[in-house]
Design a protein around this nucleic acid. Structure first.
Lengths: 250, 250
DNA sequence: TCAAAAGTGTTTCGGATACACCCATGA
DNA sequence: TCATGGGTGTATCCGAAACACTTTTGA
């Protein structure tokens, strides 16, 4: 569970349980990619540590819709790639929660089980949105994430593992990159997620063999060296690959 | 959510919410293997359809422990291989629940989100345990599972998909077979889970290359043909492979 | 003109697949 | 003795990995 404070007001504390499912929250690990760095969107309360953006589940809302809502509130994006990856339910996962006197006697004092979702978004399209109760909402490099609220570091780690596994079966990049991108950019994305280097030429061969990319006439200019081609995803084939998985894998 | 009726008594209906987390349940897809058939353990209420064995989450209990408890109640087994695979949270997933008048006005009338676990157990060691509220608790062939309660068919399907994926990264069989088993038995297990035939000789080479099996001196006698060797898992190497994953995959 | 990045091959290797032969067993 | 299933070995293929050369660009 995240975003207790951001959501807290008197009414929410008293009547939240009339609108939301008790004991249940959704946390979103929002991945972005910028300047050859994998990023994650974190939220900071006015008082307290950084945490994952999260929310609660309305009484007539699916888990997925709850995650979509949370995501929209933070990034103002719609049609985001979203994947459920794990449910965290250790009874003591919310370390330090009991000390929060504001919650005493409210439904938020209870133990929460949280459903983890990860999202892949286009960094350039996101205007991070702190709400009125939180100080900041910004991107962090994946390697330099600070100590987070509760078990959120663990959730983040698990999200990254899930993403790595999914990488082998699903085409990613469509969601993390701009519409047009270069092959080196896509390669760097894979390298960052997998946390290991990949041979430039073999990568190109493999990714092109998936037949989900279209090479454009344009090249990317402005770089200090030979200008690389721009590519975009073949939407139809990309969708098909998403549905059916990548035969070869990665 | 499953096992509403099996657990129902007046006290549970009235006071269940004092001991269990509301809106939250755990469902277990228990896989077994017998006579070259992948099986799943299903429960039948005295009134109503077949369903997955499930249970509720105690207030100070982890999701995993809740699943372990459920499993123990049905199979009397401990130390079971257990894997969380998905959380099912569609608000209308419990189709037909509203019609159940017994639940009216109780905490069970509410919508439930259920966490799906699958388990791999040694068929020969299980004595299926219907409790006093349920008629039957028996093994079903995976291909001939009947129409189940709520969205349990969907849950079962998803469990099977998860098992298939995990198969590539984790050594299974240790949990589904007896201590000693033959190579053809293990092969049939893989074939049933993957739902496709595998070449006998290539299978043997591959599985042996994983170095997690030990061939025993004994052979299995009584078959109508050449007696196959018996194998067992090398416990240490098996555990290592479970932790670190199978390099080659399957 | 030159260093660095990008485009486009070829070679090599290992694992996966396909396939063949012999052996043991109970009917 | 023979049909069937089980143990073991070899040839082949394909994708992955390793590697080389040329081209373009701004500094």
């Amino acid at each position: 569970m995240a975003k207790i404070l951001p959501l807290i007001d008197a009414d929410f504390l008293r009547h939240g349980q009339d609108h939301y499912l008790r004991h249940l929250s959704v946390d979103c690990v929002i991945f972005g990619f910028h300047e050859n760095q994998l990023k994650v969107l974190l939220l900071k309360w006015k008082v307290g540590p950084w945490c994952l953006p999260g929310g609660f589940v309305k009484k007539a809302e699916s888990l997925q819709d709850s995650a979509i809502r949370t995501l929209h509130e933070r990034t103002a994006l719609k049609n985001i790639f979203l994947q459920q990856f794990y449910a965290f339910g250790h009874p003591l996962r919310e370390k330090g929660k009991a000390r929060d006197t504001k919650l005493r006697g409210t439904w938020l004092e209870d133990r929460f089980v949280t459903i983890g979702y990860y999202a892949l978004v286009d960094y350039s399209k996101v205007k991070p949105h702190p709400d009125m109760f939180s100080d900041e909402c910004t991107w962090w490099d994946i390697e330099s994430v600070p100590e987070l609220l509760y078990d959120h570091n663990e959730i983040l780690t698990k999200a990254l593992e899930a993403l790595r596994l999914d990488l082998h079966y699903h085409p990613i990049g469509y969601n993390l990159l701009s519409k047009k991108f270069t092959m080196p950019e896509l390669q760097k994305l894979y390298e960052t997620i997998l946390a290991k280097p990949v041979d430039r030429r073999n990568f190109q061969k493999k990714i092109l063999s998936l037949k989900i990319l279209v090479r454009l006439k344009e090249r990317k200019t402005g770089g200090a060296h030979k200008s690389p081609y721009l590519y975009k995803f073949d939407e139809a084939k990309y969708r098909k690959a998403l549905r059916e998985g990548l035969a070869g894998g990665f």
